[in-house]
């Protein structure tokens, strides 16, 4: 294998993996605090992407209830991105109030939260289709239009190209990882969050407002979902109402591989799966889809707590 091909495959792996990582960061955050899997994350991600689209002033198609609707404003892309992410954060809060908090206060089976979040996800996806139709959308003005569509990491004779938008996604996922790490480890809020994650009851006995912190977790997770939805939408288009749901299954593999609830673990897991997919030899590409899951299966058998996870006795 030539060195330029090797470099190409490594960079491909990081590019694929950073998409999984950025999706998984918001996903894993909820698990790290609440120990539940939030199936609505994919739908919130889609909502964020649609909200950004609307905020840029772009028009919707002719097939939903809001046929041909457009907002009377034309925000620049970065502002629309922030607005879309805020919308996703608010959606996250609403979902927490409606589907998670009632169950938590009744102390019901944690598995049941999985089912209620599933119900909300089904409803949200179909609401999106009902309002905007099933078609794909893309952001009207390309905010990186001035940049070349791919960057060359090789030489001019042996080019090693990576799509610029994927380099940006990689950068953003690293920044988000750094910010989250600082938040969790170096702030009072982070300490309180970790206390809630450790034991909700004890945390509230210590005078920590657990409900407020859980709400904050959903705000951050929703915001990250919105940011990642928009960025991935920029890369591959907003592929209709099932856009985010399509990442759900692999996202689950990513956060478990890295160690459930471990924030750097989500990034490590995402990048590893990306690399594994990238290094599948061309003649075995037909089995590529199984690779992340085979990897997951083997890792779980060898290290049941995931790569970076701590060994804990699971309560189910």
């Amino acid at each position: 294998m030539s060195s330029s091909l090797l470099l190409q495959q490594v960079l491909n792996g990081l590019a694929i993996g950073s998409v999984y990582a950025i999706f998984a960061l918001g996903y894993t955050l909820i698990f790290s605090i609440l120990r539940i899997i939030n199936f609505t994350h994919g739908a919130i991600f889609t909502l964020g992407a649609y909200a950004t689209y609307a905020l840029t002033g772009a028009r919707f198609g002719f097939n939903g209830l809001l046929a041909n609707a457009a907002l009377p404003l034309h925000l620049p892309f970065v502002l629309a991105l922030i607005g879309g992410a805020l919308f996703a954060a608010v959606s996250g809060v609403i979902v927490e109030r409606l589907a998670f908090r009632p169950l938590r206060t009744r102390g019901s089976d944690p598995l049941l939260t999985l089912v209620s979040s599933l119900g909300v996800a089904v409803a949200l996806v179909n609401v999106i289709q009902y309002l905007f139709g099933a078609e794909a959308y893309s952001y009207p003005a390309d905010p990186f239009g001035q940049l070349p569509s791919a960057m060359n990491f090789g030489t001019s004779t042996e080019p090693v190209l990576v799509r610029t938008v994927q380099v940006i996604i990689f950068g953003v996922s690293m920044v988000v990882l750094a910010l989250l790490t600082v938040l969790m480890n170096a702030t009072r809020t982070g300490k309180a969050l970790r206390a809630v994650a450790e034991d909700t009851v004890t945390a509230s006995l210590l005078g920590i407002n657990t409900d407020r912190l859980i709400l904050l977790t959903f705000v951050i997770s929703g915001f990250l979902g919105g940011v990642s939805g928009t960025l991935i939408g920029l890369s591959v288009g907003i592929a209709g109402p099932y856009f985010g749901i399509a990442f759900g299954l692999k996202g689950l593999a990513v956060i478990v591989l890295g160690g459930l609830g471990d924030i750097p673990g989500a990034v490590v897991g995402g990048l590893l799966i990306g690399l594994a997919e990238s290094f599948v030899p061309a003649q075995y590409i037909a089995y590529r889809e199984a690779v992340p899951f085979a990897l997951l299966f083997v890792v779980l058998l060898l290290r049941p707590q995931g790569l970076l996870g701590r060994a804990v006795v699971q309560k189910v």
Partner: peptide
């Protein structure tokens, strides 16, 4: 259907 599942759990 989705809303009924969520309400069912609540």
């Amino acid at each position: 259907f989705g809303v009924m599942i969520a309400l069912g759990t609540v």
